[in-house]
Design a protein around this nucleic acid. Structure first.
Lengths: 104, 104
DNA sequence: GCATATGTTCGACGAAAATCGAACTACCGC
DNA sequence: GCGGTAGTTCGATTTTCGTCGAACATATGC
């Protein structure tokens, strides 16, 4: 059986917190990868060029901003987007962030 | 005649920069006020509880993120949203940020 | 049990950002 | 010209954030 890591009630996440969490290149990369992944990913499966301490910090930031959910499976943590909940709280925000860059 | 303060080409503004600029309570307040204002506003017309040096800094941040336009009119600076351009660059982002908070 | 794999937590450090007062610039009206 | 108005720029301070190594925790597999 798997448990999940504690996560905030979306109602208590402010827009500022959400934007703050998204306003970082590394975390943006994680969110994009999660959005295109068919299933939850282990933290280590991202090709991030940072130490595991830093990586853990970024995943924590995303989780505490209500953007991701973390399931504990053995020694791994399976991370996924809280798509529906987040969309309900901040309609359109993830879509806008995930939209392909408009090149002019 | 009015001139405008130099502003970036939206194509050169990254999503990260835009999010960074929006991820601040004071600036979020400014953007919301601008969105609901019928006409460009002078910097000083916002009820911000910060010094004018700080205020100037925030307006600069928004301008450099391509979010606002600044017109010089006499001793005043008239600030307005670059709505259409910004929407073209980051579709849906401003809408999401300006959406009324979803209370659950 | 023990080595390994996967993350987290704990300081510490440097870079970046928010804030301010003070000095400065530019313009307006009298 | 002069005083007042509206912002900007500068330097300093404080806070926040990203980053890391090292120590720790926990589960797996042999």
């Amino acid at each position: 059986m798997t448990t999940h890591v504690e996560q905030p009630d979306l109602a208590e996440v402010s827009l500022e917190t959400a934007l703050q969490a998204l306003a970082d290149d590394t975390r943006l990369r994680i969110v994009r990868e999660l959005a295109s992944a068919p299933a939850p990913c282990a933290c280590g499966s991202f090709g991030l060029e940072v130490s595991k301490a830093t990586r853990s910090h970024h995943f924590k930031t995303l989780r505490e901003a209500g953007i991701t959910n973390t399931e504990i499976l053995g020694t791994k943590r399976l991370v996924s987007l809280r798509r529906e909940e987040f969309d309900a709280r901040f309609p359109g925000l993830l879509d806008a962030v995930l939209a392909p860059a408009a090149v002019s």
